[in-house]
Design a protein around this nucleic acid. Structure first.
Lengths: 513, 513
DNA sequence: GTGTAGGCTTTTCGCCGACAA
DNA sequence: TTGTCGGCGAAAAGCCTACAC
């Protein structure tokens, strides 16, 4: 009557069990970059509060700063015992000296991670067939050939047993077979049991990872529900990184690519489970208040961070904040921001314009840069719920080709565009020469105006017209950009798409980059 | 892939749903008697803390009294949404006046409950076959004929559909059939689903109850694990009632009757579920501290009480405490105490001797009567984990036949035996004539000594010898007791058992009663 | 190259009387 | 009276190919 788990090893009963950092990162998603131990971060109680359920009233507590400079003293990579959801326990030590050496970010870890070979991993969103039918899993060829152990194709049919370790160290057994016409890779025996035990439904993702020691690991990323369909708090989203290279590093699945791709809800069953997956309610309010109070008093504290909660990181590496705060944010500025695709397989950049620069919650958190920017997206449908973003998560786009700066090169000199709406510069101590505003770049506005006009007349734009505009406006820059393919893939243009909307998107991409 | 629940009604999604008090009591067990609303109880923060996980340090808080007189202002009978475990939310209002009229206990409710007809209910511990094999449940005849709706025996075979409401008001459907050779009652279709949904295993109990309105209700009592086998904290046990009539009223399964009766653990599956079933960790430490602090400040507060946790009640009716505290507790005193049998079907009395009278935690709770008595059990094997008990849960045994007193008769005059080890009398205000020690009952000691000698020479006792002793010591009392069969069933004596240990047990029972 | 439908085999479920304690 | 066993028919699970996109 009791389903016996098809696992070889029983999980060890430890009080606090950390898991392999590589598997953790694979489950967290490609954009999440955790700050290395001993690096400096800014802690945002306001952002921490978004991790909790309901509204937290800090009113009764002594004024807590909107952001506090801290040193990361320890990180524990963990996974929820029930849901396998990954989270991290971060120990932080507040630093008295908010004004510290600019480049001394302690972020040596990033380089280390960058240089160190990333373990091969593969994520796939479960189809209906994967989750429901007959207990089989269709293995994409890439995954079978790159991640799975080498299969002996001489056998007829080629079969092998695959052992994969989950986030708890438990080992799951699958039968991997290569068969059918045309031939394809499948997981059969063992898969159904895995789906049932982990309560997976179509839309959830599975992550296979080949660890450094050769072990195969398996993690899961549960689909976020209620984004396209149900009500989603307007604050819900997650993104991290932006102004520094690499330009992303932490995010969460957000927009819906294809409305009818799958049915995210199974019939009943794990409704209770789903509640905790939608951003809010990850941590208790008391923990947030406790952390914020300790932080404000300069005492060491611990935060729990759920990388897949639909809320931005609240411990952001110090240099990102400083870089972002040096910019004179103005409405009208064009920017791009990275998001994870809904199936967590890729990263997409979305373009937008700053519509307002305004403190999010002036009563409780005056002068807080948290969610400072109100934005209008070029594709408003896909990002309906993202109304306000953190400055350090966006990357300004100018008429200049993007130059990626390493974290050790001097901070990029951003063009000062229009008039500053929000004089945050000066809040943070920094070398004086950097806060000097630079001359306006009129040409950018010209381009923008031109193409916005074009956008208002849909249907008349095509690639020729684009060339025509770029020539007629005498903007060699645009021509140059059309020749570059740094950020979009050219195959999308051939054959030239007929829908003007698509062209517009491309035009805007070109223009922006 | 996802099992759909075979229930007729979906549970209504209420925030706080109370359940029928009768079903609650049936699930809580026969010994649990909740104080009526408006009655007076003593609240023990120390006992409350035993409901919580880990050790609670009250050190940082202003001195909290060991016990506080409170009025019960409200009781909500509830059940855990996931496990169906019953618990109660008790609202308490501290009373300033600790010295109040003795008999004014407000316990009118008890009589009401006593007089009111108890609804017919039946509990059965699931056998392996009930829980595992083929999805059927063997219905004891008594249950089928008394609790279930009348079956039409003229049909061939006699079948009916049974609808039973669980603690959440959800209705479960079972096929009840009377068949086989020899004929027996069985639940077939629907039973397996119930077992799976409720995650029942062999050893858990099911309770059927016929409510006053004729509805059939079904509740579950999960088996306590780790008592005979695993490590159990020495504090773990539960019993209530004792000094007042009825002599029990609240307890918990505790001792193991037959070691090899069933295998309590299923293979994997609900290990997580089990953790919360073993006494500790029912409530959060913060709730306990909050309750205790409010109580100490005279403010109304709320406690959550799990009747099936392996820890004694921490809200005890005031008169029980007062009665118990009037006794001059001494080592050497003989007593009996009620426990629930492991299968929750009956109540057993265990005999013991007080080995020491000593405050349990003199540092944190000086002068607290909580777990005041250190005891030595006559059957130490079965009660290994019960080292210290609350005075109000034991009943002193003398050489006089037990007289059951109604709660309205004057407090029984206990014999003063030996010298008092712990002068608790005087802590509580009471009529002065009651605190006067009475004369020693030498005959009791004579009996005790005689039989303790007999016990030290095992193997020579048999029923004849018992008669011989009782005659030779010229104790007509013992002869009288041998003729009575009020507490043990006579079939055990025929044929006369050969094992001297069994006889000793009987002798002690007879002697004690 | 991979998702889905449907056939068909294998396994499990679960109802039953026999038998024994 | 009721717990457990093995038999057996029904139902579900799950492996497979065919076909579609």
């Amino acid at each position: 009557m009791i389903t016996v788990m098809n696992s070889v090893n029983k999980p060890i009963n430890e009080v606090e069990k950390c898991l392999d950092s590589q598997l953790w990162h694979a489950c967290a998603g490609g954009m999440v970059q955790m700050p290395p131990v001993n690096s400096k971060i800014f802690y945002f109680p306001q952002g921490h509060a978004e991790h909790a359920q309901g509204n937290i009233d800090f009113g009764n507590f002594p004024r807590i700063p909107a952001l506090l400079l801290c040193r990361v003293s320890a990180i524990k990579y963990m996974a929820d015992t029930e849901t396998d959801e990954v989270y991290a326990k971060i120990k932080l030590v507040p630093l008295r000296n908010n004004d510290c050496d600019f480049d001394d970010d302690g972020f040596l870890g990033i380089d280390k991670i960058e240089n160190q070979e990333k373990p091969a991993s593969f994520a796939k969103t479960l189809t209906q067939s994967d989750a429901n039918n007959g207990g089989g899993f269709s293995v994409p060829r890439y995954c079978a050939e790159t991640i799975f152990p080498r299969l002996d194709y001489s056998a007829e049919p080629p079969v092998q047993t695959i052992l994969a370790k989950d986030v708890h160290g438990e080992i799951w057994k699958f039968r991997h077979i290569y068969r059918g016409t045309p031939r394809r890779h499948l997981l059969t025996t063992g898969w159904s049991n895995f789906v049932n035990q982990k309560k997976l439904v179509a839309g959830d993702s599975i992550v296979f990872l080949r660890a450094e020691n050769g072990d195969l690991c398996v993690g899961i990323r549960r689909a976020k529900r209620g984004i396209g369909g149900g009500p989603e708090p307007s604050s819900g989203w997650s993104a991290l990184g932006g102004n520094c290279a690499p330009p992303y590093g932490g995010y969460s699945a957000f927009y819906r690519e294809d409305e009818n791709k799958f049915m995210p809800h199974g019939k009943g069953g794990n409704a209770h489970c789903n509640e905790r997956l939608n951003g809010k309610g990850k941590v208790r309010s008391e923990s947030v208040i406790e952390a914020a109070t300790l932080a404000a008093n300069g005492q060491p504290f611990e935060v729990v961070y759920y990388p897949r909660a639909s809320t931005p990181e609240f411990s952001v590496k110090a240099s990102s904040i400083r870089t972002a705060m040096r910019i004179q944010w103005c409405s009208g500025m064009r920017f791009k921001m990275a998001f994870e695709t809904e199936d967590s397989s890729r990263i997409s950049w979305f373009m937008g314009t700053i519509s307002n620069v305004q403190v999010d919650d002036p009563i409780h958190w005056p002068n807080s840069p948290w969610r400072l920017l109100q934005v209008a997206w070029d594709e408003p449908d896909l990002l309906q719920n993202v109304k306000r973003v953190n400055p350090w998560l966006v990357e300004l786009v100018s008429n200049m080709p993007t130059i990626h700066l390493s974290p050790f090169s001097p901070p990029r000199k951003k063009l000062r565009l229009l008039q500053p709406d929000f004089p945050l510069v000066g809040q943070f101590p920094m070398p004086s020469h950097l806060s000097k505003p630079l001359g306006p770049a009129a040409s950018f506005i010209v381009y923008q105006t031109t193409f916005l006009q074009a956008y208002r007349e849909p249907g008349i734009l095509n690639l020729d017209y684009l060339h025509q505009i770029s020539t007629s406006t005498n903007c060699s820059q645009v021509c140059f950009l059309l020749g570059s393919s740094s950020l979009i893939t050219l195959p999308h243009l051939e054959p030239p798409p007929s829908a003007s909307w698509t062209i517009l998107k491309i035009v805007r991409m070109f223009l922006a980059c």
